[in-house]
């Protein structure tokens, strides 16, 4: 069986999982500012547990956004270094899809519509709409960024479940999902769940072909951001 490393640094927590020989190994920390310091040591720990080195991995899966810009870049930077260095392909997966998958799996028995939403600050949400049948996802509304008040208009079909930090302020939207799990976060184990079938389906790609999905258009935040000296 393939050896697949998965890592998620898109939000405040940081997690790494490794699938190898029918087993899954996992490491997780909940320290928002520690991703850069802790990510490689966590990966190293899992590899040591299995006796593998980076070259023996078949692919690396990672959450490619949306999420914290810096968090995403730490994760992708490490993925770039490992995958480029060892010449192995990567499997980028939407952060929101991982959250939706986890929500459907843990709270809907793998069937139903899930609306993952991450607080994108500046009064906006990153969100999407996914439908699950027997644990398999189809995308109803691809990931996007909006003011929550506009979501009802953009999404004619209502979710059975809302997951993620956006839903910490559920009144921002004028509809309510059947259920809410606002404290659900993406994690590397759920990422592996999504990534493994993709690997089997031959969907791993060269790392040089991959870009992060920040979602927030560069123009939107440029105006707000302070310009450094000069």
């Amino acid at each position: 069986m393939a050896a697949i490393l998965a890592l998620d640094t898109s939000t405040g927590s940081c997690s790494v999982a490794l699938a190898y020989e029918q087993r899954i190994f996992e490491e997780h920390i909940d320290l928002p500012r520690e991703h850069a310091r802790r990510l490689l040591p966590m990966i190293d720990k899992l590899l040591r547990q299995t006796g593998l080195n980076v070259d023996q991995l078949d692919a690396i899966a990672f959450t490619c956004g949306p999420g914290s810009f810096t968090g995403l870049r730490i994760g992708f930077g490490v993925v770039q270094g490992l995958a480029y260095g060892a010449g192995i392909p990567v499997i980028p997966v939407s952060t929101l899809e991982v959250m939706a998958h986890k929500g459907a799996r843990d709270h809907l028995g793998g069937n139903g519509r899930v609306m993952p939403a991450l607080d994108a600050r500046m009064g906006e949400w990153y969100w999407g709409l996914y439908e699950f049948r027997h644990g398999r996802a189809s995308t109803l509304i691809p990931d996007r960024v909006d003011e929550p008040a506009r979501i009802a208009g953009a999404s004619p079909r209502k979710p059975d479940l809302g997951v993620g930090s956006g839903w910490l302020a559920p009144d921002a939207v004028d509809f309510s999902p059947g259920r809410l799990v606002a404290d659900l976060e993406p994690d590397a184990m759920s990422l592996l769940d999504v990534a493994l079938p993709r690997f089997t389906a031959g969907q791993a790609r060269p790392v040089s072909d991959v870009e992060l999905a920040y979602l927030r258009s560069e123009v939107a935040w440029k105006k707000r951001e302070r310009v450094r000296r000069r």
Binding site: A36, I74, G77, V79, G81, Y84, A86
Partner: peptide, 21 residues
């Protein structure tokens, strides 16, 4: 330097060294 910019070269450089041992 700029922390976000430093992070990119650091993450790639450190992990590439790890991969290459």
């Amino acid at each position: 330097g700029l922390v976000g910019a430093l992070m990119v070269g650091g993450a790639v450089g450190r992990s590439l060294a790890y991969a290459w041992q």
